[in-house]
Computed example of a mutant assay.
Amino acid sequence: MLGIASAVLFFIAFLINAAHIATNDVFSSTNFMLIGLAALALHVAGVGDRWAARGRGRRR
Rank of each mutant, 00 (worst) to 15 (best):
M1Q: 09
M1S: 12
M1V: 13
M1D: 13
L2G: 14
L2D: 04
G3S: 05
I4G: 15
A5W: 10
A5L: 15
A5D: 13
A5H: 13
A5C: 15
S6C: 15
S6W: 05
S6K: 09
S6T: 10
A7S: 12
A7P: 00
A7N: 14
A7I: 06
V8E: 15
L9F: 13
L9H: 11
F10R: 15
F10V: 12
F11M: 12
I12D: 11
A13S: 07
A13N: 07
A13Y: 06
F14R: 14
F14L: 14
L15D: 11
L15E: 08
I16F: 02
I16E: 02
I16V: 04
N17V: 10
N17H: 15
N17T: 12
A18I: 07
A19H: 02
A19G: 09
H20I: 02
H20T: 09
H20C: 04
I21Q: 12
A22G: 02
T23H: 11
N24V: 03
N24Y: 09
D25S: 04
V26T: 04
V26W: 13
V26D: 11
F27H: 13
S28E: 02
S28P: 05
S29F: 05
S29L: 01
S29I: 00
T30H: 04
N31G: 01
N31T: 01
N31D: 07
N31P: 04
N31I: 00
F32K: 09
F32V: 02
F32P: 00
M33N: 11
M33E: 11
M33Y: 11
M33Q: 14
L34G: 05
L34E: 09
I35C: 07
I35T: 14
G36R: 03
G36K: 14
G36H: 01
L37T: 06
L37S: 10
A38G: 08
A38C: 08
A38Q: 03
A38K: 04
A38V: 08
A39T: 03
A39P: 03
L40W: 01
L40H: 00
A41T: 01
A41I: 04
A41L: 09
L42W: 00
H43Y: 10
H43G: 08
H43T: 06
H43D: 07
V44K: 12
V44L: 03
A45P: 12
A45E: 05
A45T: 07
A45W: 08
G46C: 12
G46I: 05
G46S: 02
V47Q: 03
G48R: 05
G48S: 07
D49F: 06
D49Y: 01
R50Y: 06
R50W: 01
W51K: 05
W51E: 06
W51F: 14
W51H: 10
W51Q: 11
A52M: 05
A53E: 02
A53R: 09
A53Q: 02
A53L: 01
A53D: 05
G55S: 00
G55T: 01
G55D: 04
G55N: 11
R56S: 13
R56C: 15
R58V: 14
R58M: 13
R60E: 11
R60V: 08
R60N: 04
R60Q: 12
